[in-house]
Design a protein around this nucleic acid. Structure first.
Lengths: 202, 202, 202, 202
DNA sequence: GATGAATGAGTTTTCATTCAT
DNA sequence: TATGAATGAAAACTCATTCAT
């Protein structure tokens, strides 16, 4: 009778544990966070946590899966708009840099944790690749659209340009947390946008 | 008469330990590598290793310091050449992508380790920032030179473009190891080079 | 339903660990006793022990705190008796020498460990001083009482005499363990008692 | 031809090492002092130190042997004086309390180290006992002398009184370092002297 | 299911002693 | 004889995971 209720309940519990873990992993890092830390932060018992997630790594993996979903939807909704490809790219840039500004160092650090894990653990890598491919494909589609519409140069290599753009954004995020540089995101955005615009438009 | 050993010998020993550590850190990661692993891999005793490096972290830090020196010199020698700014940038691209191709996943993974460490440990961050600044400044100087020579657009923001370029390269390297994508570096290089050329030239 | 364990149970476990530690510390000394020794002697696991005490030092400290409580209560109860001050002192001597006889070398050695630790570690010193002050004050009060009652000489320096008496007892205990002399406690007691009696009475 | 010279030289070297060790052992304690510390403090090499002393413990033992010699000679010279037994005891008290005042905490701590070691290590104990016996016997002789001269009570138990006096002095020294109390040695001395005088004289 | 005490292999690091030079 | 680099056993402590209740 109650499977639905308890399933929901289960999800809520999981969510709480994930939230606590996220906080700790991003603040202290995966290795420096102990299950005891998570117990304290989440208020759950050891046994409960192991009831919901089979290991610390599993918890981390689950977190990685969710990390993407955040901004992706906004990005997707953007594509469906009727407008020029270049406008779409610029709106994407707005979106990305907006989140870049408001997002804390900790989120960027968490991202680095995910990247490092992906570079070593097959299941993480698969997930990470899937996520990156979604974004790259999305951008690639916009570029292809722009080429076909005559906005962009005909010789553009859509897939690789998309990969480059994604890498640039990722690289900037990393630069921020790894150097602690106080970057002026507005200036960077306009430098990037204008360079790309000149770089790809006819 | 004395086991007092030449500075050279000491350096050689250090180098061997560093090499063994490098292998392990990049293959398994910093945290997953134990001092016992390093003992086994290097053939040194525990005590000997601690005689050369005061902690596992110190070993890692030393490795980070050395990591930069590798390609930087080539990059620097390039700047002094007499040629157009755009040509310099292209030669830099050649250099970077060449190393990208031949370099193993392990080096890139190691790079991610360094980045993550830099995002959390002050002394690593200081070092990392210094290293990044050298490259960014180098590129920024070339760009400024290009602007002054009338090669590039006058409104270019040299520093930020440089930061963007460095981020792009770093991001691509990360994309490689984190997704395991089989990237076609030649195509990526030409996509990047042509985009940037159009993007910044008058 | 829950392994949540009563406070009593927790105390019992602690007590067992403390007992095992006491045995080892007094037999082998603090430094020569390893946590592994305590693991073996107590039958607990490493983790369990660290669950109850946060460090080997903490274990030692806890032991020190308890060491005093043993005979102190008897000593205190004595004070409240209605009798001449000199009689009180003699009864105290009886008490002290009685425990001196029955007590093993190990307890005295343990005492030396505590003294050495107190001479170097601030928290131990604070505790030790507190314990010593209780006894000194107790004796000092008896002496003052004796002076006021006209039993003892008027010019007696109650505090310092008390400190001297406590030192004498401590010194004798140390002499026992450090030299292994086979002391005749009865004779020593009467020598001390008669000397002090003549020494302080009018 | 040169055994004498090198024997002297050897002694001088030993003395230097012992001095350095003494400094460290009393400052930091036996266990907390490493051979490397002694190397640094003494300026000798590891090998040299092991050439002179067969182990860290041996070094400590040698130090213990010397520790007594210090004041003992003065004490002995005192005995031979022509004067009343009570006067001898008082001069002994002067001597002891004078050294008590000027001597640092570190010397007292070192004493505790010796005591603890003596309570556990047979060879140390033998040495320690020998040293204590010399002093106890010396005092005992004075007391016997006083009894025979009719200065002191006839029923005095010379040996045990001597042991008690030695214990009192040792106990006071320990009280000083273990509690950090700021003792007024002058007052303590007069309290002790007058008590003992009344306590043992006819 | 939930709890948290218990486990114990594994971690980094130290240091008395040895020995090739 | 002097040196100090090298050794490696042993130390204190951690922590992901299990399981009796």
């Amino acid at each position: 009778m109650s499977p639905k209720v308890s399933e929901e309940h289960r999800m809520m519990m999981q969510e709480k544990i994930l939230a606590a873990s996220m906080t700790l992993f991003s603040r202290k890092g995966f290795h420096e966070t102990s299950m005891d830390d998570i117990v304290k932060e989440s208020g759950f018992s050891k046994g409960a946590i192991y009831g919901y997630f089979k290991s610390k790594e599993d918890l981390f993996f689950e977190l990685q899966k969710r990390s993407a979903t955040l901004s992706l939807n906004e990005l997707k909704s953007m594509v469906s708009q009727e407008e020029a490809a270049i406008a779409k790219l610029e709106r994407a840039a707005d979106l990305v840099f907006a989140s870049m500004c408001e997002v804390s160092d900790e989120v960027c650090r968490m991202d680095l944790e995910f990247q490092l894990a992906s570079s070593r653990m097959p299941n993480m890598r698969t997930e990470f690749k899937k996520q990156q491919m979604v974004i790259i494909t999305l951008l690639s589609d916009i570029i292809t659209e722009g080429i076909e519409a005559g906005e962009f140069r005909k010789d553009l290599d859509a897939d690789n340009i998309a990969a480059i753009l994604v890498s640039t954004i990722g690289g900037l995020s990393n630069l921020l947390v790894t150097t602690g540089m106080s970057l002026d995101w507005d200036k960077i955005k306009s430098a990037l946008v204008s360079t790309v615009r000149y770089g790809i438009m006819r």
